[in-house]
């Protein structure tokens, strides 16, 4: 099996597997997310939504009932505003509803966030912009007919697929995608996101979502300790 070493190689492989033509594309680093440009189009790249444990939260809607609330935490080597953007979008995707009220308490690189959505669902999420390390997260998503979580009951951090112990220490591996074997998990998410945006995406809708949530994040972080409300503040 051919090992993949870069996101670009991964994208090429995903297109080649389906005998599809890969257009020229360019990835730009935005403030909170990357942006992809191809064939005269432009779209935000929400790679984190392609993480299997984030995508999985949306796969049992038909047996979980109406969304009520989500709690969780997210730590990453990313800026705090990018983390807030990410978690609001994850919640919107799970709730199928837009955010309409956000309250942020911030201390240094940490933030504790409460948000309400148009369907009355609530989000409580703690964020920490660590400046190092991997993305760690746990989400518990409560609905009228059940809850769904991306960590099992006694787990708060990711369980690694492979744990390697030698005299020189401990290593772990998190390979989860056969086609993209060799890529780090976040790179695999990005390769899938690029493929998804080019082949199945709705660039206009995603761009509008990004623009709207950028405004929410800007306003919320400028008004820490206050409720910011749709129609009044953003």
């Amino acid at each position: 099996m051919e090992k993949v070493y870069t996101v670009e190689e991964g994208v090429k492989k995903l297109f080649a597997l389906r005998k599809q033509v890969l257009p020229d594309y360019e990835i730009l680093q935005g403030k909170r997310y990357k942006i992809i440009k191809w064939n005269g189009k432009s779209a935000p790249l929400f790679s984190f939504l392609e993480h299997p444990k984030i995508l999985g939260l949306t796969l049992k809607r038909e047996i979980l009932g109406r969304p009520c609330a989500m709690t969780g935490y997210s730590v990453d080597n990313a800026a705090l505003d990018a983390l807030l953007f990410r978690e609001l979008l994850i919640a919107e995707n799970c709730f199928c509803s837009e955010v309409n009220k956000v309250t942020v308490f911030r201390s240094g690189n940490s933030a504790n966030v409460t948000a309400k959505f148009e369907n009355d669902a609530a989000l409580s999420v703690s964020l920490h912009a660590a400046g190092f390390g991997d993305n760690l997260f746990k989400h518990e998503f409560f609905n009228t007919q059940g809850m769904i979580s991306n960590r099992s009951v006694d787990t708060v951090i990711p369980q690694q697929a492979l744990n390697v112990y030698t005299a020189s220490g401990y290593e772990y591996f998190t390979d989860s995608n056969y086609a993209l074997y060799g890529l780090a998990p976040s790179d695999a998410d990005e390769a899938v996101a690029i493929y998804a945006v080019i082949t199945h995406g709705d660039a206009l809708k995603d761009s509008a979502t990004a623009e709207r949530l950028d405004r929410v994040v800007d306003v919320a972080l400028k008004n820490v300790g206050k409720c910011v409300v749709k129609g009044e503040d953003f």
Binding site: L14, R18, E50, P52, K53, L55, G56, L57, L59, K60, I63, L64, G65, N143, Q145, G146, M147, I148, S149, N150, R151, S152, V153, Q159, Q160, A161, L162, N163, V164, Y165, T166, S176, N177, L180, A188, D189, V192, Y195, A196, T199
Partner: peptide, 30 residues
């Protein structure tokens, strides 16, 4: 030594029809 779990990427839920705490495997799209 290596200790591994090939089917570790799972999501847990308590949905209908009987609200048992259970799980299903998840992975990338495409």
């Amino acid at each position: 030594y290596i200790i591994g779990d090939s089917y570790g990427n799972w999501i847990n839920h308590t949905g209908l029809p009987n609200h048992n705490y259970t799980s299903f495997g998840c992975g990338h799209r495409y």
